[in-house]
């Protein structure tokens, strides 16, 4: 049952990810990215990471994708006209992709315990509380710094998107 769910969501995620790359219309790409992220969130659920799954949906599939769609509409991007495909680009992409796949395969196959199934964990855990405890107890300073980073990013965006005053 759990294996079946894994395959369903994994294939969903990967298919829509391929869609992001393949679709010619930016809006289609963005929508398939949303679906890919939702599938990824479901994979997180199969890993008992409920909090991360929820954050994934809220932040990525929600906020980030809305931002993408806004920008697409703001820039008024239409479906790309077909440009002649560059052989060099495809060849380069192929080489790098093949290299990556080989590297990943070799790493995973040489990883000890890669074929273990999920070990048992305590049932009925309060996932959010555990992440919160780890966050505020072990990573308090990084958490504060992340807050500052967000502030800086906000200011940066305001400055960047201001029109030149002349």
């Amino acid at each position: 049952m759990s294996l079946a769910l894994f395959w369903i969501f994994a294939i969903l995620t990967l298919l829509f990810a391929v869609g992001v790359v393949v679709f010619r219309s930016p809006v289609s790409s963005a929508m398939s990215l949303v679906m890919s992220f939702v599938g990824l969130a479901a994979l997180f659920v199969t890993l008992d990471a409920f909090f991360i799954a929820v954050v994934q949906v809220l932040v990525y599939a929600g906020a980030v994708m809305v931002l993408f769609l806004f920008i697409i509409m703001l820039l008024d991007l239409r479906t790309e006209e077909r440009r002649p495909v560059k052989l060099a680009a495809w060849a380069g992409g192929g080489i790098v992709l093949a290299g990556f796949l080989v590297a990943i395969a070799r790493v995973i196959s040489s990883l000890p315990g890669a074929t273990n199934t999920k070990p048992e964990i305590l049932p009925g855990l309060n996932d959010v509380a555990q992440v919160g405890v780890a966050l505020f107890r072990n990573f308090n300073l990084p958490f504060q710094i992340i807050g500052v980073l967000l502030l800086v990013a906000t200011i940066g965006v305001v400055v960047l998107s201001r029109r030149e005053l002349k």
């Binding site: 759990s2 294996l3 894994f6 994994a10 995620t13 990967l14 990810a17 391929v18 992001v20 790359v21 990824l40 994979l43 199969t46 890993l47 680009a89 380069g92 992409g93 790098v96 992709l97 990556f100 796949l101 990943i104 395969a105 995973i108 990883l111 315990g113 890669a114 074929t115 273990n116 199934t117 999920k118």
Partner: peptide, 23 residues
């Protein structure tokens, strides 16, 4: 039951697809 390797392959595939998009 899915193993760790399953997840890692999915992760690797997802990464490669993203890289292909960038390239």
């Amino acid at each position: 039951m899915p193993t760790l390797a399953h997840y890692l392959y999915v992760s690797g595939a997802l990464f490669s697809i993203g890289l292909l998009g960038v390239l």
